[in-house]
Amino acid sequence: MKLRFLNLPIAIALLLTLSGCYDRLDMEEAAFTLVLGFDLDENGDLIIYSSIPAFNKNAKKKTQETIIHAPSPRAGRNKAAIRAIGVFQPRKLQVIVLSKHLVENKQEWFRYLDVFFRDGRNPLTSRVMVFDGQLRDLFKYQPKDKPILPLQLISLQESVNSSSLGVETTLQELQRTILDKGQTPALPQINLDSELQLSRTALLNHEGRYTASLTMNETMLLRMLQKKLRLTN
């Protein structure tokens, strides 16, 4: 068969006529949510806050915030899609912030986060934090001398983590500890005075309800129990 060499080009040519770049999404056309926040409103619906970096050179602000009222994250995603500049993508989610109000009062709020486990391309290493206060204040906090909110939260988490003054919980860890009957789920708790602070640790019971907060020193003891103590100084 002297035509062997034609097999490859013919195959490629045929494939080219069939394919249409179905999954292609150029980066500048995508709107990545780097931080998502969940709060509870009076009707028991979720308020979903998201912060999306703007890639346009002409944009004055570096990020775009959206606030949506929806019964669930999936419904909220649709509402967000009609407002974002770009295709809404949760694939680079770095931080999930939950308001203390939600964690205290909503039954089985953890099931809302189930949607992040469904897409194979979602990261499960997003850090989960509890915010003491109104989430609206957090998402409005954009000082000029600090980087954008997601990077701020991440560096805050890292600095606290390296001195063992707080816990670091990824989404995967959270699911594991909530489902594991032998361990208590713990989330870092941030609040906003004049600056962002990560000073406490929120403890949850196995339905996810908030039960108590630990101070810095008690958190260090917790980390000793978890065998994750690290002291960089």
């Binding site: 999954d23 680079k92 391309r121």
Partner: peptide, 15 residues
Amino acid sequence: VISYNFELIPVKLLL
């Protein structure tokens, strides 16, 4: 990586 799998790159590089 730019068109399909941008979840692979670190966030800062992405920005």
